[in-house]
């Protein structure tokens, strides 16, 4: 297989995976196949999986040595974002329960 074919296939695989990961949660909500907490967690997991698919297949981020800088940057962003976003939810949620 040439480089070109391999790369094209990579995009197609990514597209297929992402489409599946989209179809499932929409179906779950549309037909009410799950409820409440389970559904919320399922949607969250599928979304994270799909984001990983986008990063891997469309943005070509991988664990190879050469691109460590980018990976570090992403992980660092995720760390800070987690601190900020979960901190916000924690603080504002705590305040809401005490109103």
């Amino acid at each position: 297989m040439t480089d070109r074919q391999r790369e094209t296939r990579m995009y197609l695989v990514g597209f297929g995976l992402a489409l599946t990961l989209t179809l499932v949660p929409f179906a779950l909500v549309h037909w009410g196949l799950m409820q409440g907490r389970t559904l919320a967690i399922t949607i969250a997991v599928l979304a994270v999986a799909q984001i990983a698919v986008h990063l891997r297949f469309f943005l070509h981020i991988d664990l190879s040595r050469q691109k460590r800088e980018d990976l570090q940057l992403i992980l660092f962003t995720v760390l800070l974002l987690a601190i900020m976003a979960f901190g916000t939810l924690w603080i504002m949620g705590n305040l809401a329960t005490r109103m």
């Binding site: 901190g87 705590n94 305040l95």
Partner: peptide, 14 residues
């Protein structure tokens, strides 16, 4: 990035 709340200790959180 982990300490911002010390500017509003008195806002009412637990």
């Amino acid at each position: 990035f982990c300490v911002w709340l010390h500017h509003f200790f008195t806002m009412g959180q637990s």
